[in-house]
């Protein structure tokens, strides 16, 4: 049986792991390789590294730390941030990343998703979606969320974009519900459930984890394949070993 995945997310800025609240006010949480090893030892199923300033600054991810992480850890990891071409992706994959995640550049040019899938296979290609509910009740996509001064609200509906992304060749969708991000009141189950209904590839929940029950609900109610969180793990508010014990007791398939 396939297990549900617990995925710490490490936002990277200037070579350090940082975390902000609602994508703002970043504080340094630690060194990249050190935190990666800590999470590996605690039983994280996968890691995601977001180079949060790469896309707004129009540059690709720095492959130096990708290689250091690849040498150090023996669990899969995904790298996101400023990957805007097959060549950018190749650099990161050759440095040892298992998957690459595209977000803003895929919104600029959706064909990028298909090009990446053709070059490396859909299993390497994750599409990150930053989504916020607008006043009219529709979830819509946000772009360049790494820098609040550059973030743009798009007319594109979140569910339409998820559908298009998987048709173009996304092998996995990470849905970051910005309205619940950083406030620890639970994942946006309503939005995740709506995404799940049309998502045929693995779906990862992001934004809002604050308690073990939130993870359970994301898996049991919204039926997501993975749950991503940052601050609750970085701060030690939730320890991964006890979280996974809890999930297994709750009947969720979990790797211990």
């Amino acid at each position: 049986m396939l297990s549900r995945r617990i995925i710490p997310c490490l936002d990277v800025r200037d070579g350090k792991v940082v975390k902000g609240v609602r994508f703002r006010d970043h504080v340094v949480m630690g060194e990249i390789v050190e935190l990666a090893l800590r999470y590996r030892d605690e039983g994280a199923d996968e890691l995601v590294f977001y180079d949060i300033t790469a896309s707004p600054e129009g540059r690709s991810v720095d492959r130096g730390w990708v290689e250091r992480v690849a040498r150090a850890i023996d669990i899969p990891f995904c790298v996101a941030g400023g990957i805007r071409s097959v060549e950018d992706a190749r650099e990161v994959l050759h440095a040892g990343a298992d998957k690459i995640s595209v977000n803003s550049p895929a919104l600029e040019r959706p064909a990028l998703i298909g090009e990446l899938a053709a070059a490396f296979g859909v299993q390497c290609v994750v599409v990150g979606v930053d989504s916020l509910r607008d006043a009219d009740g529709e979830w819509r996509v946000r772009q360049y969320t790494g820098d609040p001064t550059k973030t743009q609200a798009l007319a594109r509906r979140t569910l339409d974009w998820i559908d298009e992304a998987q048709r173009l060749g996304a092998g996995e969708i990470v849905l970051n519900c910005m309205g619940s991000d950083g406030v620890r009141e639970g994942y946006d189950l309503e939005q995740l459930h709506a995404a799940r209904a049309l998502c045929r590839v693995p779906l990862v929940a992001s934004g809002g984890a604050g308690a073990p029950e939130h993870f359970r609900d994301a898996f049991a109610v919204a039926d997501v394949d993975g749950a991503l969180a940052a601050s609750v793990f970085h701060s030690g508010a939730i320890a991964i070993p006890s979280l996974k014990q809890y999930l297994r007791r709750a009947g969720i398939a979990t790797r211990l």
Binding site: Q123, V201, G226
Partner: peptide
């Protein structure tokens, strides 16, 4: 073969 609850690619940890 894709089926309800079986999302392809098979991605993740399995026993």
């Amino acid at each position: 073969a894709e089926a309800p609850g079986l999302r392809v690619p098979h991605m993740g940890w399995n026993r």
